[in-house]
Design a protein around this nucleic acid. Sequence first.
DNA 1: AATCTCTATGCAACCGTTTGCATTATTTAG
DNA 2: CTAAATAATGCAAACGGTTGCATAGAGATT
Lengths: 342, 342
Amino acid sequence: MKRTRITIKDIATELNISASTVSRALQDHPALKKETKDAVKALAKKWNYRPNSMALNFLRQTSSTIAVIVPDITSYFFSATVTGIQDIMASTKYNIMICVSNESFEEEALIIEKLSQVQIAGVLIAPASTTVNFDHIKTLQKNNIPLVIFDRDCKGLEAHKVLVDDYSGAFEAVDYLIKSGCKKIAHITGDSNLSTNNYRLQGYIDALKKNNLPVIQDFIIHAKGFKHEDGIAPTEKLLKSKNVPDAIFAVNDRLAVSAMRTAKKLKFKIPEDISIIGFDDEPHSAYFTPALSTVWQPVYSMGMLSARILLHDINREEGEDFELRHEVFKTELVIRGTSISI
Amino acid sequence: MKRTRITIKDIATELNISASTVSRALQDHPALKKETKDAVKALAKKWNYRPNSMALNFLRQTSSTIAVIVPDITSYFFSATVTGIQDIMASTKYNIMICVSNESFEEEALIIEKLSQVQIAGVLIAPASTTVNFDHIKTLQKNNIPLVIFDRDCKGLEAHKVLVDDYSGAFEAVDYLIKSGCKKIAHITGDSNLSTNNYRLQGYIDALKKNNLPVIQDFIIHAKGFKHEDGIAPTEKLLKSKNVPDAIFAVNDRLAVSAMRTAKKLKFKIPEDISIIGFDDEPHSAYFTPALSTVWQPVYSMGMLSARILLHDINREEGEDFELRHEVFKTELVIRGTSISI
DNA sequence: AATCTCTATGCAACCGTTTGCATTATTTAG
DNA sequence: CTAAATAATGCAAACGGTTGCATAGAGATT
């Protein structure tokens, strides 16, 4: 009962013409006369002919699949970025393959290894936090696979990059805290291997310096990870120390939310006793009480632009000179209830 | 500079043997003598030979790509399910392609149309809320593409299904609310086209009936969508009416969170004035104040099982008799601060 | 009528790998 | 020493579509 797909040859046989003519007819080749084309097209439609993509891929030695490698897909940040990518790709012939590295360098390398078996048209990657060298990414480049790095920078690697101005985002947030009267601002940061964390940390430091506030090492605490529970210990450490801060700038919303709950448990009033600002502006962040002040990132746009840049590179002509794109999106400070209004 | 991949022919030429011998050597064909095999394998390794997957796909007329169709990927529910799927597939030769329908029947049909161009090994689908007929899904079946439906039921469609016991989950939640003293329990539900919503609604109704409480139509309110903002209007309607409920069971956490904030704004005390229970147990739900009581679903396990069932079907032998799997996962009621403890 | 020029179409190779069958080389039996 | 059996390898087709080149047929030009 397994019906075999109808092929170009079937149409050719039926119409008593050659397969090449059918092929050309379907491509509107100018040398063919209209009647032939029309006959072919009509039958193709009638028989619901679909070109065999495997044959095409084989012939062209490339697929129409684009791989997206993200560290995690359950975080709003990446799932929203992926949605942006998806929405751009939906109107093209490309399909996207999503690969999750679980923030692991090894898994990431394995994914790229696995991908190199399959011929893919291009790769969009946000490297894992534990990624220390870029040899696996360079392999892609060596194989001439178009590549866009997004969100997380790979310092020293030449590639298209779509990033967020983490430095300014952090700077503005901390600057705001200072302007609102906070003098002892702590920062919960993450893995120092990650460019985004470092830029945010630097923004924090520079905002303090600009406002002539001391940079206190004890106020800079590293969280073990990005999840809610990773924010509890750092916050407790800060709030139970002798030198209690009057504000916490967390490297993301999850940690900020966690800091918030921990502070509440320790009977701190927010924002009177302690201000809190996060980073990301996840959809539910506005629904906490008080609503979380945070730094918004244009996640969806970032996904879309990354996808567009990749498409542009894929469709580049052979000799066409190309420039490496390096785009940096601006963030926006969203002040809600966890910080004092000014 | 574009290095062409090395093929089986290159190896054959180098060793002065035929391509077929190389092919067989790499497959450990018993007819070949050991020396030949060893020589081929050594050279293949030395030259880093990779079989051309496009050629293989073409030959076998199938790819090693599995499609996952979800309504939305920014929701925790689906992104966590996808992670489960991903983690199972990671150890196989299969890659997953994620497609987002945006809860739209049209987009879903379009995706399947696009997928049918590409030959895929199998499909995992959670249908969109607006999906009214299953013709597009049946097309997959007609083309003998293994299929698993997860989370959302397609009534009347014969296929592997991995679902959650929404009915019991809802029943238990409402039963708990009643036992905790609530007598006027409202339900914020969603699109009535969705099996999950209906099962939860039925669970709600049956729990009321079992406890001899009246089912009041005004207490059953349909939210426009699944997002936070969709919960505001229904909650306001409930809390501003003359007959104010003493509990709200929301069809998901997002709406519950929204109900919570709206209730707070209207000066309701939670849970004293009004209890709230959600559905999903998103990771941040425990971080609200009070922490959200909710119904936990085994999302990750669901993803894993769905993936395993699909793999099993894909690897089924031609004549092997197969049974349609129909798995239903149990939920778990998680009582936190938005409901009165008993 | 022979030659030329188009126009429309066909032929055949190609992409990389697998695999049924054929063929060669080697060994064993008679 | 020949025939038969066995072992090892090669040949060629197949998968579906594209495309450079060849060619048949019609019409135009001389």
